[in-house]
């Protein structure tokens, strides 16, 4: 049985990035779009930790912590915007919020 190398981890990260991108582009519910963004940020985290493992240097893990912090801030502000939006428009579907569409 072949041993697991870091390339396998990079492939997993690429798969998660792709799935997250498809979710952002195809879903209509804004909550699910935010969840897909979390998937993309997790793919970034895998990459950072794998590179930290390759070079035996833990700077990548520090960056992963900052990315996690960013994800928390982004989720909090995004869901706050979503609540304000729902209060005004009574919908959470991205294609029904077309106030700026000509």
């Amino acid at each position: 049985m072949h041993p697991i190398t870091t390339v396998h981890y990079l492939a997993l990260s690429a798969a998660l990035l792709l799935i997250g991108t498809v979710g952002v582009l195809t879903r209509r519910n804004i909550v699910v779009i935010l969840m897909s963004i979390e998937l993309i940020l997790n793919a970034v985290n895998i990459n950072l930790i794998v590179f930290s493992r390759i070079w035996h240097n833990m700077d990548g893990q520090i960056f992963a912590i900052f990315v996690i912090t960013d994800a928390v801030a982004e989720a909090a502000v995004g869901l706050g915007i979503l609540i304000a939006l729902f209060r005004n428009k009574e919908t959470v579907l991205a294609d029904e919020i077309d106030l700026l569409k000509w």
Binding site: P3, I4, T5, T6, V7, H8, Y9, L10, I49, S52, R53, I54, H56, N57, M58, Q61, I62, I65
Partner: peptide, 21 residues
């Protein structure tokens, strides 16, 4: 981009403990 494909096994790298971080 086939980087130096480091083999990953459990306990192979001990740089991520709360102390180091």
């Amino acid at each position: 981009l086939y980087l130096p494909g480091v083999t990953v096994h459990f306990g192979g790298f001990r740089g991520g403990t709360p102390l180091d971080i």
